[in-house]
C-alpha cells in the first residue's frame, strides 16, 4: 500500500470512530492503534491477574465464612476479567503466551497499586472500597471505547464488578462501627491505601504521554486529573459517613470549584514503584512467574492428551 493510500484509510478510520462506529478485529486499523490497544488492554489484563495476589493473601484467613466466600468469589472474578481482557487483546494478533512473556520479563506493566502489601484484614475492605472504586471510575467510560472487543469485555467486567466495591465498603463499615480495635484497623488501612489509590488514576496530566491520542480513540474519556478529582469528591463523603479520616491535612471543600482541594501527591514514590522498587514488586512477579512455570508440565500434558485423543478418533473413523 502506498503512503497516500494509508493516509486515506486513516482518515476514513478516524471518521468512523468520530461517528461512534466500533472497530472490529478484522477491520483495517493504523498500526499505532493496534499497538496502543495491545499495550493498554494487556496492561489492564495483567493488572487483573496480579491484582489477585494481594487479596488472595487473605482468603485463607478471612474472619467469617460469609466474608471468605465473598472474597474468594471476588478474586475469582478478577481471574475471569483477566481472561476476558486477554481474549479481547488476542483479537489484535498477539497470543496470551506472548503477553505473559512481556509481563514476566517486565516489558509490560500492571497497575502499580498491587505492589503494596496487604497487612491486615482491613486491607480487604480498603482495596474493595478504594482500589475498586478508582478502577470503576476508569472502567465505566471504557464500555464505550472504540475497539469492539475491548468495549464488550468492559461491559461484562463492569457488570460483574458491581458487587466488588460494595463488598469492600461493607467490610470497612463493619470495622468502623466495631470495637475500637477494629476501628483502628480500618483507619490504618485507609491511611496506607489512600495515597496509592490516588496515584492509581495515573500521572498528572502534564506528565501523561498518551492522553491526547487516547482521547481520540475513546480509550480515555477524561484526563487523569479529572478522574482523580471525581474519585476524591465521591470518596470523601463516604469516609465521613463511616467516621474515618482521610489522611490528608490539606483536604478541604472548595465552595467555588464545588470540589475538594487536596494535598500534594508523592509522585516520586509513584515512579519508584512503577520502576520496580515498590514493597512487593518482586514477590508479585515471583508468584506469577512461579505459577506459570510450575504449570508448564500440566499444560503440556493436556496438549499431549488432546493430540492422542484426536488420533484415536481419527483411527476409529477410518
Amino acid at each position: 500500500m502506498s503512503e497516500e493510500q494509508i493516509k486515506n484509510l486513516e482518515i476514513q478510520f478516524n471518521a468512523r470512530i468520530e461517528r461512534d462506529e466500533k472497530i472490529e478485529p478484522k477491520d483495517w486499523m493504523p498500526e499505532k492503534y493496534r499497538k496502543t490497544h495491545i499495550r493498554q488492554m494487556s496492561q489492564h489484563a495483567h493488572s487483573e491477574i496480579v491484582g489477585m495476589l494481594p487479596e488472595g493473601n487473605w482468603i485463607s484467613r478471612a474472619p467469617s465464612l460469609r466474608r471468605k466466600v465473598a472474597l474468594l468469589a471476588k478474586v475469582q472474578d478478577e481471574a475471569g476479567h483477566g481472561l476476558y481482557l486477554y481474549s479481547a487483546t488476542e483479537t489484535l494478533g498477539i497470543s496470551r503466551e506472548e503477553m505473559y512473556e512481556q509481563l514476566h520479563t517486565g516489558k509490560a506493566k500492571y497497575s502499580s497499586i498491587f505492589n503494596y502489601p496487604t497487612l491486615t484484614w482491613a486491607d480487604m475492605g480498603a482495596i474493595g472500597w478504594l482500589v475498586d472504586g478508582a478502577a470503576i471510575i476508569n472502567q465505566v467510560p471504557l464500555c464505550n471505547t472504540s475497539y469492539g472487543p475491548y468495549a464488550r469485555a468492559m461491559i461484562r467486567v463492569c457488570k460483574e464488578e458491581s458487587f466488588h466495591q460494595r463488598q469492600g465498603f461493607e467490610i470497612m463499615m463493619k470495622l468502623a462501627n466495631g470495637t475500637s480495635e477494629q476501628k483502628d484497623l480500618a483507619q490504618d488501612a485507609l491511611n496506607r491505601w489512600w495515597w496509592p489509590s490516588l496515584m492509581m488514576l495515573g500521572p498528572k496530566d502534564e506528565e501523561s504521554v498518551h492522553t491526547e491520542q487516547s482521547m481520540k480513540w475513546k480509550l480515555k474519556r477524561k484526563s487523569n486529573d479529572d478522574l482523580r478529582q471525581q474519585f476524591i469528591d465521591q470518596t470523601v463523603p463516604q469516609a465521613d459517613l463511616i467516621g474515618l479520616t482521610i489522611p490528608d491535612p490539606e483536604l478541604k471543600w472548595n465552595k467555588e470549584r464545588g470540589s475538594y482541594d487536596f494535598g500534594p501527591i508523592n509522585w516520586d514514590e509513584f515512579w519508584q514503584v512503577v520502576k520496580g522498587h515498590g514493597p512487593c514488586n518482586k514477590e508479585r512477579m515471583k508468584a506469577r512467574v512461579g505459577a506459570w512455570k510450575e504449570g508448564e508440565w500440566v499444560r503440556d500434558a493436556a496438549i499431549a492428551y488432546a493430540e492422542k485423543q484426536a488420533n484415536k478418533n481419527f483411527n476409529k473413523a477410518v
Binding site: I49, I59, S60, A287, A291, E294, G295, E296, V298
Partner: peptide, 13 residues
C-alpha cells in the same frame, strides 16, 4: 482456596 491465583492456567484457576 490457597491455590487461588496460582493455578497452571487462568481457566484451571
Amino acid at each position: 482456596g490457597q491455590l487461588c491465583g496460582h493455578g497452571p492456567s487462568l481457566e484451571t484457576d
